[in-house]
């Protein structure tokens, strides 16, 4: 065999091994996605233990403090570490607007994404998403006296959330995101 053919053969074996490795990682990545997504218990936002604190000044009806926390678990049943786990929550406030003939109005009051790092394979990651007072979009809050109809309902205020979990797996070759839309998370009524 000519030397050039020997060199070619070695190079071809290298490309073949590279292709096989990438294909194996891709297949195992696909299987990981199936293993994780096939059991709804693997991705569990714990809405029962979610806390939403809204402190309203009784005399001025101004919002003094607002925060939101949501514990959640993610069980990595796949073949690789889950990387770059991010949870994004958009919180919306639903109320009746006095200035608009009591029409129902929805405003976004929180838009936060939190990164929780990696979850090694076979490990159940337990995390708490926390939206502190400063991360709320205070400028979007309706004026408590001139805008919110506190006599609506009850409840006068309703809170809904869009919840997104995104992550990378198979050494970053696949990216996955799951979004739950329009989830009722709580209400508030001073009367």
């Amino acid at each position: 065999m000519r030397p050039s053919r020997v060199f070619r053969l070695l190079f071809r074996i290298f490309i073949f091994l590279l292709t096989i490795s990438v294909t194996v990682v891709s297949i195992l990545g696909g299987l990981s996605a199936i293993l994780i997504l096939s059991d709804t218990d693997n991705i569990q936002p714990d809405f029962d233990n979610a806390e939403f604190n809204l402190d309203i000044n009784n005399s001025t009806l101004e919002i003094e403090n607002i925060n939101f926390s949501l514990p959640f678990k993610l069980n990595n049943t796949g073949f690789f570490d889950l990387e770059n786990l991010e949870v994004g929550i958009q919180l919306f406030l639903n109320y009746s607007d006095i200035g608009m003939m009591n029409d129902t109005k929805v405003v976004k009051i929180l838009d936060k994404t939190q990164n929780f790092g990696d979850i090694p394979k076979g490990v159940i990651g337990e995390f708490v998403f926390f939206g502190e007072n400063s991360s709320f979009l205070h400028e979007n809050f309706p004026h408590p006296i001139t805008e919110i109809n506190w006599l609506r309902g009850p409840p006068a205020l309703e809170f809904y959330a869009n919840f997104t979990v995104s992550l990378d797996y198979s050494i970053g070759m696949h990216s996955l995101s799951i979004t739950i839309l329009n989830l009722f998370v709580g209400d508030s009524s001073p009367f």
Binding site: R12, V22, I178
Partner: peptide, 29 residues
């Protein structure tokens, strides 16, 4: 409920890298 999305773009880029090596091999041929 919502939606879920799966991105395979990164995987395709890795395969493109392997094809690039194959192009080198074919030019060599």
């Amino acid at each position: 409920y919502g939606f879920f999305s799966l991105s395979l773009a990164q995987m395709i880029l890795i395969y493109m890298g392997i094809y690039f090596l194959t192009i080198i091999l074919k030019v060599y041929d």
